[in-house]
Simulated assay, not measured.
Amino acid sequence: MNIFTWNINGIRARKEALAAWLDSRKPDIVVLEEIKAQVSEIPETIRDFAGYRKFWNGSTFKKGYSGVGLLVRDGSLDEFTCEPPPFDIENRTLVLHAPQFTLIGTYVPRGDGEERYAVKLRYLADLKAFIAELLTEGREVILLGDINVALRDIDVHRSQNKPGAIGLRPEERAAIEAHLGLGLLDIVRELNPDKKDLFTWWPNWKFARERNLGWRIDCIYLTPALARKVSGVSVDLDEKSSDHAPVSVKLSL
């Protein structure tokens, strides 16, 4: 089973690229972050794309802002449900419950400005409490999405590793560490412990992507029992239509 996360940075702007990507990659599950569209605004080419069940948490909080989607390929899961969780704010989260696992797709707030930074920390705390409850129930968990935190110095290019920068602050890194403290594993880093310049997002500076001046903020965290079933991870560097690259994990279930 191939499971992807991709911050698409506007599904209407990326409709042709997304359709071509779905056709070529054929993910079993993909979480799309920052769709920037209400459900009624999802492009027809995506809404009617064959072979997938589609779930949307559209940008009702603010027009053209946030929003997530989750697509499940026909035949990949026998039974499941998908809906926003109780703690969701600003159309940032979808949760899929299947017999094998619970998958949480998230678009964590960036946190610019002190008010928005407080929102980010509260969201991460609520997300952690939700995961802790699932683990108490004995569920296997996959958390994936645009986390908007570079956890380690190795996860951000040295040119942008500036103290106090949003995405690098001690409090937000500690919040992600608390998620991992529940027992989740950062599977991309686990399988690439010393790999430098392993990035998933690049600023909109001239030639930043070509020079790989990026951050690793799109992540997949999962419980140890699921981690033992992982046969590979990847960052799809060939897909360049968004400022984020798709990230995937392959599970042998």
Results as ranks from 00 to 15, higher is better:
Ser248Ala: 15
Leu96Val: 04
Lys63Arg: 14
Glu190Ala: 14
Gln100Arg: 13
Arg189Trp: 05
Trp201Ser: 02
Lys250Ile: 10
Leu151Gly: 00
Phe87Leu: 10
Val95Ser: 07
Ile8Cys: 13
Gln160Ile: 05
Ile142Leu: 05
Gly164Leu: 11
Gln38Arg: 15
Gly64Ser: 10
Asp28Phe: 02
Glu210Asn: 07
Ile29Lys: 00
Glu83Ala: 15
Asp23Lys: 15
Val141Ile: 12
Val108Ala: 00
Ile147Phe: 06
Pro109Cys: 07
Glu44Pro: 01
Asn2Pro: 00
Glu33Ala: 14
Glu210Asp: 13
Ile3Val: 15
Asp126Phe: 05
Val230Glu: 02
Arg116Phe: 00
Phe61Glu: 07
Glu177Gln: 15
Gly167Ala: 06
Gly67Leu: 05
Asn161Lys: 12
Asn148Trp: 00
Ile35Asn: 00
Ala50Glu: 15
Ser40Trp: 02
Ser252Gly: 06
Glu44Lys: 13
Val31Gly: 14
Phe87Gly: 02
Asp48Trp: 04
Leu77Trp: 01
Leu32Met: 11
Glu171Asn: 13
Leu237Ala: 11
Leu168Lys: 01
Ile11Ser: 00
Gly167Tyr: 00
Val230Asp: 07
Asp155Arg: 01
Glu239Gly: 03
Ile166Asn: 03
Ile11Ala: 09
Pro43Ser: 07
Arg152Thr: 08
Lys54Cys: 08
Leu226Ser: 03
Pro27Ala: 12
Pro163Gly: 09
Ser242Pro: 06
Leu182Gly: 02
Phe199Val: 04
Asp218Trp: 05
Ser76Ile: 03
Asn57Cys: 13
Glu137His: 13
Asn9Phe: 09
Ala208Asn: 08
Glu34Asp: 15
Trp201Gln: 04
Val39Pro: 04
Val235Ala: 06
Lys62His: 14
Arg139Thr: 09
Asp243Gly: 06
His157Tyr: 07
Phe130Asn: 01
Ala178Val: 04
Glu16Gln: 14
Thr5Ser: 15
Arg228Glu: 15
Pro109Lys: 01
Tyr65Pro: 06
Lys36Gln: 09
Lys128Asp: 08
Ala20His: 11
Asn204Arg: 14
Lys63Met: 06
Tyr107Ala: 02
Arg14Ser: 12
Arg139Met: 10
Gly214Ile: 01
Ser76Pro: 03
Glu239Ser: 13
Ala245Gly: 02
Val95Cys: 12
Leu103Thr: 05
Glu210Ile: 01
Leu222Lys: 03
Tyr107Gln: 08
Leu237Ile: 08
Glu90Met: 09
Ile187Leu: 05
Ile131His: 01
Lys36Met: 04
Glu172Ser: 07
Ala174Asn: 11
